[in-house]
Structures are given as structure tokens and as C-alpha cells.
Computed example of a mutant assay.
Amino acid sequence: MGITKLADLIRLDAHDAISHKDISDYTGKVIALDTSIVVNQFRAATPALSPLTGLFFRTLTFLEHGIKPVFVFDGKPPGEKAAVLEKRAETAGWRFSNRTGIASSQTKDCLQLLRLLGVPFIQAPGDAEAMCAWLVRAGTVDAVASEDMDSLPFGANILIRQLNAKKDSEVIEYSLPKLLQKLQISHEEFVDLCILLGCDYCDKIAGLGPRRALTLIQKHRTIENVVLNVNRKTHPVPLFWKYKEARKLFLDAPQIETPELVWTEPDEEALVKFLCHVKYVKEERVRSRMEKFRKTREEREKEKAAGCTKQTKMEDFFRVTRKRGQPVEAADSLSSNTKRPKSK
């Protein structure tokens, strides 16, 4: 679920925090992805096919565009989120099996595929979204790519949505610094706002809409003060409300050392052996996709050697919000050069 109606609230009250881009704008960037979201997208879109096939195709597309993906896997889910995950899996007709954080057979298959693709992955101690956000704050990656909005209260400065490798898709980028500046609240106050909106870790105050929640936080600054000033008859506060535990989950950084990220060339023969001979994907599909990958990479290398750059189209000078005419600022986005520890 992520954060209930947060995207709508940002669009209406902090549209300057949104930029609309193309996948090619992220060439050379290191992007962290919550693997479970990527896999579940394919499971929902093509339930008859293995999500491994989708992960294989999408990862190659990222690499073709010069994007350096880092896949993050969920560890043991927080107790506060377990019930939500079980209900979500039941609704989708899946079996939730990650109560202990032990890797499932599907996770092990994804890990093996990424090894053969030469792409780094990280095992989070808990929630993968929290780990992705921490990687951004630590300067290890440039941004988080996710369809859930949780990355923003977890502290990711840049969140990318719809990085789904379709040529006609419009990638949406959210800037947390711009968002906080526009709403005139701190990150801690923003976390409290997200809890009031509705998150995966606790209940919410009933009947409290996004605009009202924002107004209350801007005026009273903390959930504790909001509770003292809200009409409990129209907006009953949950009994034994675990908002403090939810707040702590959003604000506490994962206890893990900064990982070293290394990308290597995909091993085609090993990929064919694994995907085709073990997982029974048609060999022709794998071979043809690898051939396209090589040709695309060769073309890009030739263009780079010749000093060619992507031609700028007229509309690139005037990127506008789809169906809206709001101006988009360039600051605090991935268009600006930020220093990061050198990755291999």
C-alpha cells in the first residue's frame, strides 16, 4: 500500500517537488530497487509466466541505458507489518512465506539470476524500502526506484516511479528536499504526516483526509499535539495506537555496513543453462535478447567514442507535467551532479 494518497497530496500541494523525465535521463546513475515490488509487478501482469523472465528482461534494459541497478531484498519484516503483508498476499492469491526473513526458493532464483547478469544485490536486515532509502542517504546510490511512496518518509532524497523500461512511459521523479521546503515541515514532521495519512505499520485516525492531516501537522507539528487538538467524536483515535513504533521504523537507519557495489558483464552461457535448462524458458528468447543487448551496447559505445550525445528534442526544453502546465525546476533532481563514493 505504501502511504495512502501521498502522491495525490504532493501533486496538489507540492507539485514543484515532481519532475517528469525519460529513462535515458538516468544514464550513469546508480539506482536501488526493492526487488519484491519488481517481482510482484510481473506476477500481477503475467501470472502464467515466471517473474524471473521479467526480471531478466528489465535488468538488461536498465543496463542498455547505462543505468547501474542495485536490487535490494527484504529481510525479516517488522512485526508491525506482518499482518499487512499476509493480507496483501491473500488478496492477490499468493502465499506469504517471509515471516522469518529466510530466503524463499523464488528469492534464491532471483539472486542466482542477478549473479549471472553481473548485477549487485543487497540483503536488507528488515524492510527493503528502508534499506533503499538509507543507500541514498549514505551516498551509495543516486535514487530509489519504487512504486511505493514509503521511500520518502524513510528519507530517500530522490524517489523514481514508473521506471518500467517502456519507451512511451513518463518517469516521475520526486524530490524530498523540495517537498519538505514546499510544505514547510521537517522530515520528522513529514513522517508524522505519513502516519496520519495511513502506512503499513499502524492504524490511522479515522475520517482524517490528506488535506486535513497536512493542516494539522503544519499547525501542531507532532502526532502527540494533533491528538490533543482533534475532535475525537468525528475522528476517533485508535486504541493502543502504535504510532510511536511506526515513527521509529521510519526514522531509524538500518544497522548494516556500507556495501561495495561491483557490476560485471552478463554470463550468457550460464544464463542459458540456468533459465533454459533449469527454469525452462525458451532458449530462443534468451539468446535473441542477449543479442539485442550486445548490439545496443556496441552502438552506444560507438556513439560515445565518436563524441555523440543524445539529440535534444524541442519538448525536452519544455518538460511539462502530463495534463498539467506546472513548471519543473532542475535543482535537487538527478540532473545535478552530486558526489558519491566511487563504485566499481
Results as ranks from 00 to 15, higher is better:
residue 4 T to E: 14
residue 9 L to G: 02
residue 9 L to H: 02
residue 10 I to A: 15
residue 13 D to F: 02
residue 16 D to L: 07
residue 18 I to G: 09
residue 19 S to K: 12
residue 19 S to I: 12
residue 21 K to W: 05
residue 26 Y to F: 14
residue 27 T to A: 11
residue 31 I to R: 11
residue 33 L to K: 05
residue 38 V to Q: 04
residue 39 V to L: 11
residue 41 Q to S: 06
residue 41 Q to G: 04
residue 48 A to L: 08
residue 49 L to W: 04
residue 50 S to T: 09
residue 52 L to N: 03
residue 61 T to V: 09
residue 62 F to S: 08
residue 65 H to G: 13
residue 67 I to E: 00
residue 69 P to M: 04
residue 80 E to G: 06
residue 83 A to M: 15
residue 84 V to A: 06
residue 85 L to K: 11
residue 86 E to I: 15
residue 94 W to V: 06
residue 95 R to G: 12
residue 98 N to A: 02
residue 101 G to N: 06
residue 107 T to H: 03
residue 107 T to K: 07
residue 109 D to T: 07
residue 110 C to M: 10
residue 111 L to C: 03
residue 113 L to C: 02
residue 118 G to S: 05
residue 123 Q to R: 10
residue 127 D to Y: 02
residue 128 A to I: 08
residue 129 E to I: 11
residue 139 G to R: 01
residue 146 S to T: 10
residue 151 S to F: 07
residue 162 Q to V: 09
residue 166 K to I: 12
residue 172 I to M: 03
residue 174 Y to V: 12
residue 175 S to E: 06
residue 176 L to K: 04
residue 180 L to T: 05
residue 184 Q to L: 10
residue 188 E to A: 06
residue 194 C to L: 09
residue 196 L to I: 09
residue 197 L to C: 01
residue 204 K to F: 00
residue 207 G to R: 02
residue 214 L to P: 05
residue 215 T to K: 11
residue 217 I to K: 00
residue 219 K to V: 07
residue 219 K to P: 00
residue 220 H to S: 01
residue 222 T to M: 02
residue 228 L to A: 12
residue 228 L to E: 15
residue 230 V to T: 03
residue 235 H to P: 00
residue 240 F to H: 13
residue 242 K to H: 00
residue 249 L to T: 08
residue 252 D to E: 13
residue 258 T to G: 05
residue 261 L to T: 02
residue 262 V to W: 01
residue 264 T to D: 03
residue 265 E to N: 06
residue 265 E to D: 10
residue 271 L to E: 09
residue 271 L to R: 05
residue 277 H to M: 09
residue 280 Y to M: 15
residue 282 K to N: 05
residue 286 V to M: 00
residue 287 R to G: 01
residue 295 K to M: 10
residue 299 E to P: 10
residue 302 K to Y: 12
residue 305 A to S: 13
residue 306 A to R: 12
residue 308 C to L: 12
residue 308 C to A: 10
residue 310 K to F: 01
residue 310 K to Q: 14
residue 311 Q to M: 14
residue 312 T to F: 00
residue 314 M to Y: 15
residue 319 R to C: 12
residue 321 T to G: 14
residue 322 R to C: 09
residue 323 K to M: 13
residue 324 R to A: 15
residue 328 V to H: 08
residue 344 K to T: 14
